[in-house]
């Protein structure tokens, strides 16, 4: 078995612990959340609740306010959106690497996962104010 296959580093040195398994786990969990919930969310906030009629829009707004006023809904939304953000971050990172940005892998890692983390902080701050 080669050193690489055993997880060994260059020249027989032990490899640094890799964070890849962690990001792949977040990718998988987020992939499930995005698949199960995001189409329904898009249907709702993109088509069913928006309305050019002021009364209907106010009705939709009241419905959303009542739902997110209940803390378990806020916790669920946070979990679903946070995991989905990390799923997207991982896939975007690998897609950009596949499209020729492999040399910028380190920067992409910071930008993609950092962006997802920033999105989570933003989402948390928003949900705390609802």
């Amino acid at each position: 078995m080669s050193g690489a296959a055993r997880g060994g580093g260059k020249g027989g040195r032990p490899a640094r612990p890799s964070s890849e398994a962690f990001w792949w786990a977040l990718f998988s969990a987020g992939g499930v959340m995005a698949a199960l919930f995001v189409p329904a969310f898009i249907l709702t906030t993109g088509f069913l609740l928006p309305s050019s009629d002021a009364m209907a829009a106010a009705g939709g707004a009241g419905k959303v306010a009542a739902a997110v006023g209940w803390w378990p809904v806020r916790v669920a939304i946070f979990g679903i959106v946070a995991l989905s953000l990390f799923h997207c971050a991982h896939r975007i990172r690998h897609t950009l690497m596949d499209l020729g940005l492999r040399r910028a892998g380190g920067v992409l890692k910071v930008l993609c996962y950092g962006g997802a983390a920033a999105g989570c902080v933003w989402l948390g701050a928003v949900l705390a104010r609802v």
Binding site: V38, F41, I42, T45, G46, L49, P50, S51, S52, A54, A57, A58, G60, A61, G62, V64, A65, V68, I77, V81, S84, L85, C88, G119, W122, L123, V126, L127, R129, V130
Partner: peptide, 25 residues
């Protein structure tokens, strides 16, 4: 879309009137 969803939740945090205006947009 997730960014737009967080923006929508932000409008909800700003109040029902702000969210209704956003839903009209």
């Amino acid at each position: 879309y997730l960014v737009v969803l967080i923006l929508t939740l932000g409008r909800a945090a700003a109040g029902e009137a702000a969210l209704a205006e956003w839903l009209q947009a």
